[in-house]
């Protein structure tokens, strides 16, 4: 039968749910070993952070989509957590192979890393369900001068919910795509569009950590090697 947008969306959702069936709602034995190998075990902080972020996500999802859809928000969050654990494990395996180390204490105790990774996982889940669309999204309305709408959850909605800097979200995108080779072409394209929006616009907004980093680079003497903005 011919592929329709609805059939394509249903297939993507079934694929995502199928791939995450074997991934539990808790860290796997392998991930748990990575946590235990840390100088400071991050397990409790990881679980506590997920609780806090789930509350923020559920509340804002309900506000955006409607109070009767709170249960959908919980389902999205549960899938997002599964994807978060799955991708984290794949990232750590890849880093272990690359660096020949098993102690990732600093990375695994970095709250920004976890929040960015979970935000990216939720963005993938919501994009799969067609809830994060750029065509009708608030971001487009916002840059077009309209009111930022509260009726959708399109990117960069998740950054606002988690109070996450776009520049920090940007850092996980490529590693995320590498770590999950089963993602559909459409979802990879969606993440690439997020990446481009950050690079071209969002990372340059007032308050972005990018400015502090540029300042540090400048103070470190690297400014002489930088090209001028014009070039």
């Amino acid at each position: 039968p011919p592929q329709t947008p609805i059939r394509a969306a249903m297939t993507s959702i079934q694929q995502l749910r199928g791939e995450l069936i074997s991934t539990g709602d808790q860290p796997s034995a392998i991930l748990d070993t990575y946590f235990k190998n840390c100088t400071v075990d991050p397990t409790q902080d990881v679980l506590k952070r997920l609780e806090t972020l789930e509350q923020a996500f559920s509340q804002r999802f309900g506000q955006a989509v409607g109070p009767r859809c709170v249960v959908l928000g919980k389902q999205r969050f549960t899938l997002g957590v599964r994807l978060y654990y799955k991708v984290m494990e794949a990232m750590l395996k890849s880093e272990e192979k690359r660096l020949s180390v098993q102690n990732f204490s600093k990375l695994l105790n970095d709250s920004t890393f976890h929040t960015s990774l979970l935000a990216c996982s939720l963005e993938v889940v919501m994009a799969t369900y067609g809830e994060s669309s750029f065509k009708t999204g608030g971001y487009i309305q916002e840059v077009a001068g309209g009111d930022p709408t509260e009726t959708d959850v399109c990117f960069p909605w998740i950054l606002d919910v988690f109070n996450l800097a776009a520049f920090d979200f940007y850092k996980v995108i490529e590693s995320f795509i590498k770590a999950d080779p089963t993602m559909s072409k459409d979802i990879v394209k969606h993440l690439e569009t997020c990446e481009n929006l950050i690079m071209e616009r969002i990372a340059w907004r007032r308050g972005s950590p990018l400015f502090e980093l540029l300042k540090q680079e400048h103070e470190g003497g690297a400014a002489e090697q930088l090209e001028t903005p014009a070039s």
Partner: peptide, 21 residues
């Protein structure tokens, strides 16, 4: 399976991006 352009070099990974090397 997709056209994403990977920009990270082999010696770069998530650890470096979060300054955890």
């Amino acid at each position: 399976s997709h056209d994403y352009h990977f920009g990270l070099e082999d010696h770069e990974g998530i650890s470096e991006l979060f300054d955890c090397d």
